[in-house]
Amino acid sequence: MCHNLKLALLLALSCVAANVHAEKADSGKPIELAADRGSLDQKQGINILEGNVVATQGTLSMRADKTIVTRDAQGNQTLQAFGSPATFRQKVDGKNEYIEGQASRVDYTSASNLVILTGKARVKRGQDLVTGEQITYNTVSEVYQVMGSTPSASGTPKGRVTVILQPKPQDKP
């Protein structure tokens, strides 16, 4: 697989779960990509993988029906993953728990450090869960924004969001 595609997917995949204290050792592991077919355009900086796309790096895994990775002249990269649903999963560093996400579409842009999950979006960490039509996650500030529906022309959301936060275990005397 070409080096630029590996680098693009490494960046995109690592940023999807970067600041939730993902398994630190993952970044030093090789990336394995598999798909039914691919199109790599080095000159235009557009790489497309289609058909049961699976990308893994250590404990991080991503699955999609199709991914499009692009890089602009400044080196900024974008990843679009489409699926029924597109999913990702990564172990949380130092804990026996995972962060998992899924949506019909997952977009990541390195310039803005934003991951946007759209279409029946769901992010789970341990037993905590956030669901909505769209979840935006800033990988630097670690702030989530959840919408019950995608923005309409009127700007009025019509759906609902769900947030389930489990209580912290109490220390026993």
Rank of each mutant, 00 (worst) to 15 (best):
G38F: 07
E97M: 11
A18S: 15
L40P: 05
I99C: 02
G28D: 12
N52W: 12
L13N: 03
T56P: 01
A18D: 15
A64I: 01
G101E: 01
I31R: 01
I68W: 00
K24W: 11
D41A: 10
S61H: 07
P30A: 08
A103H: 01
P85C: 01
D26N: 12
S112V: 09
Q57D: 07
T131L: 11
E32V: 10
Q102I: 05
L13M: 12
A81Q: 02
L49G: 00
D65W: 10
H21E: 13
Y98W: 08
T70A: 05
A22H: 02
P30S: 05
S61N: 08
M62T: 00
N52A: 10
T59R: 03
T67P: 09
V92A: 08
Q102G: 04
T56W: 00
G38I: 13
L114N: 07
F82P: 10
T87G: 02
G51Q: 14
D107R: 09
T118C: 10
V115D: 00
I31C: 04
L11K: 11
L11N: 07
D26I: 00
K43I: 11
S112P: 08
V54R: 13
S104C: 05
S112G: 10
S27A: 14
A81W: 01
I68L: 04
P85D: 04
T118V: 09
G126L: 07
R37E: 15
S61M: 13
S27L: 08
L79I: 10
G51N: 08
K120T: 15
P30M: 06
F88V: 00
N76C: 05
K120Q: 14
D107E: 10
D41S: 08
L40N: 08
I31E: 02
V123R: 00
Q42T: 12
Q102P: 06
N52F: 02
L129W: 03
S27M: 10
S14P: 06
G94P: 07
I46D: 13
K29W: 08
K95F: 09
G94V: 09
S61P: 07
R89W: 08
A17T: 06
I99Y: 00
S112Y: 05
A55E: 02
V16E: 11
T87S: 06
A34S: 15
D128C: 11
A121K: 01
A25H: 14
S112E: 13
D128F: 14
E100W: 06
Q74T: 09
G51I: 07
V115L: 12
A86N: 03
S110P: 06
G119Y: 09
D93N: 07
L40T: 11
D65H: 13
M62N: 00
I31W: 02
A18R: 12
A64E: 02
P30Y: 05
I31S: 03
Q102T: 06
V92Y: 00
K95E: 09
A111N: 14
S39Q: 15
R71N: 10
Q74F: 04
Q90E: 07
S84Y: 14
Y98A: 03
E32K: 15
S61W: 05
A17H: 03
A73S: 13
V53C: 03
K43P: 04
A25K: 13
S39P: 07
V54Y: 04
V16H: 14
V54W: 02
G126Q: 04
S84M: 15
A22S: 12
R71I: 14
A17G: 14
D107K: 08
A103Q: 00
Q57F: 04
Q80W: 09
V20A: 09
L11M: 11
R89G: 04
